[in-house]
Design a protein around this nucleic acid. Structure first.
Lengths: 297, 297
DNA sequence: AAAATAGTGTCTGTCAGACAATATATG
DNA sequence: CATATATTGTCTGACAGACACTATTTT
């Protein structure tokens, strides 16, 4: 079609003459919250090991935040989508491919990067414990898997004109051989007659770079929310697993104990039984399951 | 702290000397999917008017997509967050302020804007029908409220090695005095042993600019999902409303009829009754409710 | 037999779907 | 009274929480 604009140009002519304005543009980074689940050490081999939720962090080798720990990530390049950048980062840092990946949120606070204007388009990826190489101890690259703990530590509600403000403080604790990082992230929900608004801020932060405490907190909340009504947790499992292991994963994500019978009923449609069993476990063998490919609901 | 990097610089020195690289950067736009609910015309005044879900579109006055309809939006400026840009656009286009606003998704497909590299950080806003000025007919600005219809029109499932691909096609129909726009958006879910991936693409598109059909489809799906487990729909209601009106809003969002008794039980905790009633309605008056500010759940 | 986990049975209360019955305005 | 909507009652089946019981392996 050849509609002319007010300058008498066709769309083709317009585009040929178009020059990107001299407006300042942001850099956009894709930052990855990569979760996995691993077994904790267990002295008594007859007891089942506990599961731990872990997140991958990289130690920064240059300014800013030199020596602090940051999410893996990098700038999105021209002719690449944010998702492609995320996939690229994931492969570079973990060597894995074709895993669960989900866009989380785009963070754009002013000054979130002290160098320049940088937005972060964040992604969450779930990797099964089995396929994680022992990159954990790979200190050369400065990468490590940190055990995640995320707990509500303070809750308050203040009445304001025409509504209230609810403040929730969560303590994010990340621990590994390299020490422990602690941050407190606050979620503020402002409810008034007209609207409801939620915002996140970092109250304190020891050891994490940028606003990455906020991004990790956001990822954990997304994960906790989705665990209850999707099969998302199954992406953290190896090909074959027992229902008890799956329950442990749910429990470590939700930081809450679940009842066995109810749990099994709930996940029944998400898994398919196999004819394999665990062996030499020091007790009754357990049937192994795999993720069901059939739809549920 | 004065840790030195490999060049022997402190963080302050590093930042003072830092120059944004000459890497190409994307423009980032904040695009708004602004929903409201209005009454349809009703001849018989004793019957209740039906509700319609509407979205605000702007007719493009220049290339590219001259004459097509687009979501309100604009580029994010330096020293501004994407959310601030969204709030700014919202105020410019509708005059409203302090309404429900939620970040949706960041779209970054290559070539989504024929001019240059542009990502779209999209937001959804919900406005109550009462406070919408008659900007609808405001043709000068080229803005109009389009009635939304979004329906599954094709569903197929193809087996692939180690899993399956499910393809869902939705027809998005937008209608107003300015005519009807139609697009078909496809959601492809690829399920394999290792992962589950979802992607959206535009199959056909008549009258909408850019990839905005995809963004609107994404917004409708988010809205439909959240309606069932949050009080999000209440942000589409005026201060006082009847339960039947609220039910109509749920029905128009979900495109599905609901049972009255069950609906009333479900929303009981989301609303607070008042002592006011509808008047002169041609039938039994109805109690008016307002959104409950108390927490639910 | 003891230790440890695997797996099943069942009661109970909540809640959504379905349908029916009753209530109260206007024309 | 007819029309139209408002509001409540109740039956039923699905399902989650709670708890108890049985089963099977290794030491």
């Amino acid at each position: 079609m050849d509609i002319l604009d007010r300058d008498g140009l066709t769309e083709r002519e317009f585009l040929e003459r178009y020059r990107a304005g001299d407006f300042e543009r942001p850099s956009v980074a894709a930052d990855m919250v990569i979760f996995t689940v691993t077994d904790a050490e267990e002295d008594n081999y007859r007891k089942l090991p506990e599961k731990e939720l872990r997140v991958l962090l990289i130690r920064r080798g240059g300014h800013p935040f030199l020596g602090k720990w940051a999410l893996p990530g990098g700038f999105v390049r021209p002719n690449e989508t944010t998702e492609q950048a995320a996939v690229r980062e994931l492969r570079e840092e973990t060597g894995v491919d074709n895993v669960y990946l989900e866009q989380l949120y785009t963070f754009s606070d002013i000054g979130r990067d002290p160098r320049t204007w940088v937005m972060s388009c964040s992604y969450m990826s779930l990797i099964d414990g089995g396929q994680v190489q022992v990159k954990a101890g790979d200190d050369a690259a400065g990468a490590a898997w940190f055990k995640v703990s995320y707990r509500l530590v303070r809750e308050s509600k203040e009445l304001i004109e025409g509504g209230y403000v609810k403040t929730l403080q969560y303590e994010l604790k990340l621990s590994s051989d390299h020490g422990e990082l602690t941050a407190v992230v606050e979620r503020t929900v402002t409810v008034t007659e007209a609207s409801t608004a939620t915002s996140y801020s970092i109250v304190s932060n020891d050891g994490l770079a940028f606003d990455h405490a906020k991004i990790i907190a956001y990822a954990i909340e997304r994960l906790r929310g989705k665990v209850n009504y999707t099969d998302i947790a199954l992406h953290l499992m190896p090909k074959l697993f027992t229902l008890t292991e799956l329950q442990q994963v749910y429990e470590v994500i939700l930081d809450k104990e679940l009842l066995k019978a109810a749990f099994r009923r709930k996940v029944a449609d998400l898994v398919t039984e196999t004819d394999h069993y665990t062996e030499n476990a020091g007790h009754r063998p357990s049937r192994l399951y795999r993720r069901s490919l059939e739809e549920f609901r």
